[in-house]
């Protein structure tokens, strides 16, 4: 059951195997109540997350994208999340330029022991996405928006 009322939306989460994925597990084991809109994709490191993963998800209909990795200085591979931080910050600043709401994309750091923090992050983010509503679609069929061509 979604904690947030109404229709379930599609939120994609890219979680680092070593921290945030564990953090989400901790939250589950501790039986913290969480919204169910998030679909988790486990990645080996937040450094694995290409900004284009996020872009592709958002263009093709995801209502929100959450990327979560280890806290800076805690990366399992020592520096993956530092690269991720630069790339994702660049992306966050770039998205509004092409008309995608930057609030639909969030990146953060959650460690494996922070079940509580994970629950808060997911709940807050899901609530925000529900307030923003479904993402305006990019036309996926051959018929192009009439008002665009006009």
């Amino acid at each position: 059951m979604s904690v947030v009322e109404g229709k379930e939306l599609r939120i994609v989460g890219f979680l680092c195997n070593w921290c945030s994925y564990g953090g989400a597990d901790t939250a589950g084991v501790s039986r913290f109540k969480q919204p169910t809109d998030l679909r988790i994709i486990r990645v080996p490191c937040s450094g694995r997350v290409d900004p284009l993963f996020v872009v592709k998800a958002l263009i093709n209909g995801a209502d929100g994208v959450l990327v979560s990795g280890c806290h800076p200085r805690d990366c399992h591979y020592s520096d993956g999340n530092y690269y991720a931080r630069r790339r994702l910050e660049m992306l966050k600043r770039f998205l509004p330029f092409v008309g995608i709401d930057a609030r639909r994309f969030h990146y953060t750091w959650v460690s494996a022991s922070e079940g509580q923090r994970w629950q808060q992050t997911v709940t807050e983010f899901t609530t925000l996405i529900h307030e923003l509503g479904p993402t305006p679609a990019f036309p996926q069929d051959q018929t192009v928006l009439k008002e665009v061509r006009a």
């Binding site: 092409v98 008309g99 995608i100 665009v148």
Partner: peptide, 10 residues
């Protein structure tokens, strides 16, 4: 945001 989106879609 809507204006920028419309611009790029066009």
């Amino acid at each position: 945001l809507e204006e920028r989106r419309a611009y790029w879609l066009k």
